[in-house]
Simulated scan of single mutants.
Amino acid sequence: MKIYGIVGWKNSGKTGLMERLVTEIVARGLSVSTLKHAHHHFDVDQEGKDSFRHREAGATEVLLASGRRWALMHELRNQAEPPLADLLKKLSPVDVVLVEGYKRDTHFKVEAHRVETGQPLIALDDPTIRAIASNEDLPDMTVPVFDLDDTKAVCDFILSELGL
């Protein structure tokens, strides 16, 4: 599987760009999966539901299945967070895996950047960032800069980088 990342500070437009890229990649006839890193406590389960109760009772893994989808929840129970490479092995094969976050990992990335956040560009100190998608002109950058809303151009760049 080929992977490519989307990184950026909070409220930089990462998730919106990811969503639009998934739609664009699928429209081009390719299969795509996503992997998102969360820096905070999160829960995909609902309190009171059977699967939630199983986890709360101490189950390490709970697999929830129906005729439409299945989801596997794994509680780390004080174990270290697994590295990205280990998580990627859990995905079924697809043409492209888009990774949101994991800005310190070594895979190639596009940085989403909004001037309103007031945050500095990550690309200035990170050679794994191969392009920037921004809502402001950045004429002095050494990597390509795309309009944050130009999904087609960002997608063209990523797929070209991946040889697809």
Rank of each mutant, 00 (worst) to 15 (best):
F52D: 08
F52L: 00
R53V: 05
E56T: 03
E56L: 10
E56M: 11
A57I: 03
G58L: 09
T60R: 14
T60Y: 10
L64K: 09
L72E: 06
L76H: 07
L76R: 06
L76S: 07
R77C: 01
Q79A: 12
Q79W: 00
P82Q: 11
L84G: 06
L84I: 05
D86P: 03
D86Q: 15
L87K: 08
L88I: 10
P93L: 01
V94W: 03
V96T: 05
E100Q: 00
E100C: 00
G101V: 05
K103N: 06
R104I: 12
T106H: 15
H107V: 07
F108M: 14
K109M: 00
V115A: 14
P120Y: 09
L121A: 05
L121K: 06
I122H: 10
A123P: 08
P127A: 14
T128A: 13
T128P: 15
A131E: 02
S134A: 15
S134D: 02
S134Y: 03
D137C: 00
L138G: 02
P139C: 08
D140R: 14
M141H: 11
T142L: 09
T142M: 04
F146K: 05
D147H: 11
D147N: 14
L148C: 01
D149R: 01
D150E: 09
T151K: 05
V154E: 02
F157M: 01
I158C: 04
L159T: 15
L162C: 05
L164C: 06
